[in-house]
Structures are given as structure tokens and as C-alpha cells.
Design a protein around this nucleic acid. Structure first.
Length: 694
DNA sequence: GCCGAATGTCATTCT
DNA sequence: CTAGAATGACATTCG
């Protein structure tokens, strides 16, 4: 999918539409409307809807208003005297002055879009009221994550997130209705949602998570009280359950959102035909024409639009396709890196903090990657902070790996505050590669400006960069010398982990989307593949130690470690399992090595014995040969002796009748053979008797 | 797709 | 009694 230059920089964007539609109570699918309505018509729409001219025309850039987050970023060159230029900040202030509540939060906007698209205008109004109250009170009031809250699994799998984003709609619609994402088999998505839920259940075990939940509940109560509007409270109750999960993210990341309606608006409007490629819209003529009918479509075709597109156009998709976002530094950079962006972005005018929809954001990466590669001259890129890729990847990873969104959000919050302090580093020059980053490329947190390796670095750095502190109080990990050494190691370690043995592979390898996404998917898979199962598990449960140190540390250090750090039962159990498995793994390796050594030794013994046997055979043969030679000599000598012997009468002695016998004293006697044979019999009998006695 | 080697893991026993 | 080593058996991965 190509990316075209948006036009939102000189428009009010979708926010205005949201306001207008909610004001008018129109049941309009904004997705469709946005395809057809250029923002220049918004003024007319305001007038058409009966807004006072001051609201319609006297709209100024945000720069002079303040307090509305990134509007100044959207309108950097805006002039307050320009009546034709719409400013969301001014507009919102005008509307608030008129008693129209609203909060320019993307997730609110997202929720609004969904609500309006689903025909639930009352809910939208309720949200507007609640959000505006909180916003006017604190300036950074709560918002609602319409995107992530809709995702039941909250996983990083785009299909999963997608299904989550469309959950509300899909539940209300016929199940046979095809979705826009053809590469998203629902069965697989549901499986992975289940896996994600398992992981979240495991991760949410953290007591800090419970604290956050309680805090969120308290804040929500106060928020409702501050509303003071009975109808709004009643309306709010409907989506309160959805809000509970993700609103804690909003509390922690209170501020401007990453994905705003302007972004969606510009995306949809700048490239409706491309968007429609991925959407099964049906045969609605207005949609197939893909032209800009503008204002007329609002009043005449809204209902049809909603029916035609509402189930297929996801705000998540639009978010993912929209790279125009504010900045976020790499999460790992906060630990040690200087704030030196390798991609230029516009520093914020205020220290706004960003929320990030925790779901589905993975898909964002390859698209942006592609865009940045192919469209280097886009003005958009000048405003694009590629660091957003980091947080998106991290968040998606966090969701995929079962990270607690609260903790990830805390990380991002820290990043933001740090970034705001170092905003001076945000130069305007595009830096494609900086040799100074090479020092960080070592280890798991390496910075690499190569976008192809982006995901992997994010993946690797995600855990080591932040996991210890929020969970396990790692500020005092230098108690023993052993920890001194491993403390630094673990920060840069690749803790990767999945609770379910088959979940990670299936998750990371299964999700796919057309185009460049395969490349990123491959990197994610590679990164995961390099990690053992226990490492992935440790990563998922935020184990603040590397598997290696868990296995190798002495038992005393191990026990002291378990007692020193605050770990949940699940974490302790996992650590013990990791240690047991690691020990057993080493033992198995040693065992096999020993077994192999034994086998090799036995083989050597066999060879040696065979060689010895052959040598003995040769020696025996030689001995037999020598014996035979000796026998032959004795025989020859025997006959020589008898040839020389003579009896008393001088006759030769017959060897058949006589035999030579050696006596004990060495003398040789000539005796008759009868005597010799009888004497032999007696000696043999004596020998037999002795053997019988023994 | 089958096969074998390498490796991980579990259960069990031994130290 | 506990931790670890040792090992058989089985499963998984990979070439």
C-alpha cells in the first residue's frame, strides 16, 4: 500500500467531524464520510449544522491557545488571523465555551468513531462529557482507549488486535460477514486471542498491576463524579467495562495521543482508493467511485455509508497506516543512551505524553518502513519520528509477550519526560546513520538506524531496557559480587519468554500481512528464535535476571536473590523452574558427554584388547614354532646319541628297546623302555591321586 | 516425508 | 530433608 502525502497540515481534520457529528447526533460512519469529505468543507459543515459563525470561521491555529497537546505541531505555521484555517484547539475551546464537551484525545476520538459508526451516539456524547470534564479540570484528563480496549486479547498479533478492534461490531453482526483482512482466519485469531489471554493472566498477576487497577478504579470514580451529568453517567456505564482495562494506560500516559483523528482523516482522504484495497466495501456506488463528493455526502448518504463500511474499516487499520505521529524515544535509550535521534522529528511544544494503543501496532512497522524507504522526500517524513516505531514495536511486543500494559506505559511515560528534557537533541536533519550509535549496537539494546533491524532491536531491547525497575525494584542489586557482574548483563539481556511453549512461535510466525511485513516478521521470528523457551518465559514474566545467571549463580546467592527482590509466586516458581531446568540441562549435557566418553573409552578398550589378542596370537605362533624346532633338535640329538652308543659286546643299542633317561643329578642312564613306561604309569597315578586329594 | 543426530525436558534415583 | 547430580526415556528441532 502506497502512502500519499496527507493534507491534514492545513485542515481541522477528523476531530472536527467528530465534534460536528456528535453535536448533530448523526448516525454517520465517519470512515466513509472521511473518504468523501475534504476538510476544507468543514466550515460549511459547521454553518450547516447551525454552529455560530464564530465557531465556524474564527478558528485559529493552536499555537496561541495552548493546552491541547499536539495541535501546535499540526499547525506549526498557522496564523491566528487566518479565518480559513481550522484549528482544532481553537475550535475545541470555542465548543467548550458553548458548553459542548470534548477532549481531543485520539483514543477518545477512536472510540467516538466506533461509537458513531455503531450508531451509538449517546455513548459518544457520554464520553464527550466525561472527557471534557476531566480535560477542563486537569488539562490532562482521562481519555479512553477505544482501540486497545476493544481488543480482548490485547496481543501484538495484528489479526488479533484487528479482531479486537472490531469485536464490538462483529458481535453485533452476522458471523458470516467477511472481514476486510482476508489473511486473517478467524479461527487462528481466536486461538491466539486465547493464548494472549493466558499470558495476560499470568502477567497481570503482578501486585503492582493490582495497584494500578485500584488506582484506575478510584480515578474513574472521581471522573464520573466530576461529570455531574446523570445522563452521561448512565451512558458511561455502558462502556465502563471496556474502559477499565485500558484507562489505566491513559492515566499514566495522560496527554496527547499518538494516533489522532487528523491522522486518520488525512490518511483516508489522501488515499481512499488505497485504503479501499484492503476493505471489502461491497458494491456501494458512492464508495466504489472513490471520489470526493464532499459535503453532500454527509447529509444524504450517511446511513448507507455506515452500513456499507462500518464492519470493515477499523480505526486500528487506519492508525496503523498512519505514520504521522508524535515522538517517542526508544525505550532502551532511557537507560543509557543520549537523546540523539537517528531520525528527525519535530520536538513537541509541550511536554505532552503519549498513549499508544497496545494492540495491532505491529503492523505499523513494515508499513512505515516501506514508506520511509520509498518516499524519502515526503514532507511527512520530516515530521515523522521513527522512534515511534520503537514504542510501537515495544508495545506490540509487550502485548504479544504478555507485558502488562501499565508497565509499558510507565516506561513510555518515563521516556516522554526524559525526552522532553532532552528535546534540544531533536535536530531537524535527517540522520540515517550515526557512528556514535555503534557503541550501543553491542548487546541487546543496540541502536541501529537500519530499519530492517529495527524490530529486532526493539524486541531485544524491550525487556532488558525496562523490565527490572517497574516490577522488581532493581535499584539495589549490587549486594553480592555475583550480582555486580550480572546486573549489567541482565539489563542488556534478551529475556524472551512465552508462557505457552507453542504460543510464541505460533504467534510470531503465524501473523503475516502482505507486502514488506514479511521482512519484519522474519526479524521478529529470528529474534525470538534466538531465545530459548525459558528466556522467553522469563521475558514475559519480567524476570529481572537472565536465565544464565539464574542457573549459574550459587545456591546461596540464588536464595538471597529470591528473598531480596519482590517477586510474585509465579515469578519465583518460574525462576526455580528455570534454574532446575537449566541445571538439568547442564547435567544432561554432562551426562551425555560422560556417556559418550564412556562409549569412546570402551571402544578404545576394545581396540586395545583386540590388538593385545593379535599380539598374543603372534607370540603363541612364535613359541610353537620354537618348540617345534626344539623338538626336532631333541629328536635328532636322541638318535645321534643312540647311534654312538654300544653295549657291552660292542653292538649298537637299539632305540626301540632302550631309552635315555635323565636322572636328578644330571647323569644320563640307558634304561629299557619297559621300565620307562612302567615308571611313567606310576608317576601318572601319583599325580592323579594328588589332584584328587586337592 | 523419513531418518538420525543433537538437544531439551521430565521423572526418578542417587549422592 | 534439600539441592544437585546422574540418567533413562521421551519429545522436539534440524539438517
Amino acid at each position: 500500500m502506497k502512502y500519499l502525502k496527507p493534507w491534514w497540515s492545513d485542515s481541522g481534520g477528523l476531530l472536527h467531524l467528530t465534534i460536528l457529528l456528535s453535536l448533530a447526533g448523526l448516525n454517520v460512519d465517519l470512515d466513509v464520510y472521511l473518504l468523501l469529505s475534504p476538510p476544507t468543507l468543514l466550515r460549511d459543515e459547521l454553518l450547516l449544522l447551525g454552529c455560530p459563525p464564530s465557531s465556524a470561521y474564527a478558528l485559529s491555529p493552536f499555537a496561541a491557545s495552548g493546552g491541547w497537546g499536539r495541535a501546535g505541531q499540526l499547525h506549526p505555521k498557522g496564523r491566528e488571523s487566518d479565518p480559513a484555517e481550522l484549528s482544532e484547539g481553537r475550535l475545541l475551546r470555542e465548543l467548550c465555551a458553548l458548553g459542548v464537551p470534548f477532549i481531543p484525545r485520539t483514543r477518545v476520538d477512536a472510540w467516538l468513531v466506533h461509537s458513531v459508526a455503531a450508531g451509538d451516539a449517546d455513548r459518544a456524547h457520554g464520553l464527550l462529557g466525561a472527557a471534557a470534564t476531566a480535560s477542563s479540570a486537569g488539562g490532562v484528563g482521562a481519555s479512553v482507549d477505544g482501540g486497545s480496549q476493544a481488543a480482548p486479547g490485547g496481543g501484538g498479533d495484528p489479526r488479533e488486535a484487528r479482531s479486537g478492534a472490531l469485536a464490538t461490531r462483529e458481535e453485533e453482526k452476522a458471523p458470516a460477514e467477511p472481514t476486510a483482512e482476508v489473511s486473517n482466519p478467524r479461527g487462528r485469531a481466536s486461538e491466539e486471542i486465547e493464548l494472549q489471554r493466558e499470558r495476560h493472566e499470568a502477567v497481570n498477576y503482578s501486585p503492582q498491576h493490582e495497584e494500578n487497577e485500584q488506582r484506575v478504579s478510584a480515578q474513574e470514580k472521581s471522573l464520573q463524579q466530576s461529570n455531574g451529568d446523570g445522563s452521561n453517567v448512565a451512558d458511561t456505564r455502558d462502556w465502563e467495562a471496556e474502559k477499565t482495562t485500558d484507562s489505566r494506560n491513559e492515566r499514566q500516559l495522560n496527554g496527547t495521543d499518538i494516533f489522532c483523528l487528523e491522522d486518520l482523516f488525512q490518511l483516508l482522504s489522501s488515499q481512499p482508493e488505497n485504503l479501499l484495497e484492503g476493505i471489502s466495501l461491497g458494491d456501494t456506488p458512492l464508495l466504489s467511485s472513490s471520489n470526493y463528493d464532499g459535503l453532500n455526502s454527509l447529509a444524504t448518504n450517511s446511513v448507507n455509508f455506515s452500513q456499507a463500511i462500518s464492519q470493515d474499516v477499523s480505526l486500528h487499520e487506519a492508525m496503523l497506516l498512519c505514520p504521522n505521529n508524535t515522538f517517542r524515544r526508544d525505550p532502551v535509550a532511557r537507560t543509557s543512551l543520549p537523546q540523539e535521534p537517528f531520525f528527525q522529528f519535530n520536538p513537541p511544544t509541550t511536554n505532552t505524553e503519549l498513549t499508544l494503543p497496545g494492540t495491532n501496532v505491529t503492523r505499523f512497522v513494515p508499513l512505515v518502513d516501506n514508506q520511509m524507504r520509498n518516499l524519502p522526500n515526503q514532507g511527512l517524513l520530516c515530521d515523522l519520528d521513527v522512534n515511534i516505531l520503537d514504542e510501537i514495536n515495544l508495545m506490540s511486543l509487550a502485548m504479544e509477550e504478555g507485558f502488562d500494559p501499565v508497565e509499558v506505559s510507565q516506561l513510555f511515560e518515563e521516556l516522554d519526560s526524559e525526552l522532553s528534557l532532552n528535546s534540544s537533541h531533536c535536530s531537524t536533519s535527517v540522520t540515517t546513520h550515526d557512528s556514535s550509535h555503534s557503541v550501543y549496537e553491542e548487546g541487546a539494546i543496540g541502536y541501529n538506524t537500519d530499519l530492517e533491524s529495527f524490530s529486532q532491536h526493539d524486541l531485544e531491547g524491550a525487556v532488558g531496557g525496562y523490565s527490572p525497575e517497574p516490577i522488581c525494584h532493581m535499584n539495589h542489586r549490587s549486594d553480592s559480587g555475583f550480582h555486580e557482574e550480572v546486573a549489567l548483563q541482565h539489563v542488556f539481556h534478551n529475556h524472551t519468554y512465552h508462557l505457552h511453549p507453542t504460543a510464541p512461535e505460533s504467534t510470531s510466525e503465524s501473523f503475516s500481512w502482505p507486502g514488506k511485513s514479511q521482512k519484519v516478521s522474519r526479524y521478529v521470528n529470528d529474534a525470538d528464535r534466538n531465545l530459548s523457551r525459558d528466556e522467553r518465559r522469563a521475558k514475559a514474566l519480567h524476570i529481572p535476571f537472565s536465565v544464565d545467571e539464574i542457573v549459574r549463580m550459587p545456591v546461596d546467592s540464588f536464595n538471597s536473590m529470591l528473598s531480596r527482590y519482590y517477586l510474585t509466586d509465579l515469578q519465583v516458581s518460574l525462576i526455580r523452574d528455570i534454574r532446575r531446568r537449566g541445571k538439568n540441562k547442564v547435567a544432561a549435557q554432562n551426562c551425555r558427554k560422560r556417556k559418550l566418553d564412556v562409549i569412546l573409552n570402551l571402544e578404545d578398550d576394545v581396540c586395545n584388547l583386540q590388538a593385545r589378542k593379535e599380539a598374543l596370537k603372534r607370540e603363541r605362533a612364535q613359541c610353537n614354532k620354537a618348540i617345534n624346532i626344539m623338538k626336532q633338535k631333541v629328536h635328532d640329538l636322541y638318535h645321534d646319541v643312540f647311534r654312538l652308543l654300544r653295549d657291552d659286546q660292542g653292538r649298537p643299542v637299539n632305540p626301540n628297546q632302550y631309552a635315555l633317561q635323565c636322572s636328578h643329578d644330571g647323569s644320563v642312564l640307558i634304561v629299557p623302555k619297559e621300565l620307562v613306561t612302567s615308571g611313567h604309569r606310576k608317576e601318572n597315578q601319583k599325580g592323579k591321586r594328588k589332584s584328587e586329594r586337592n
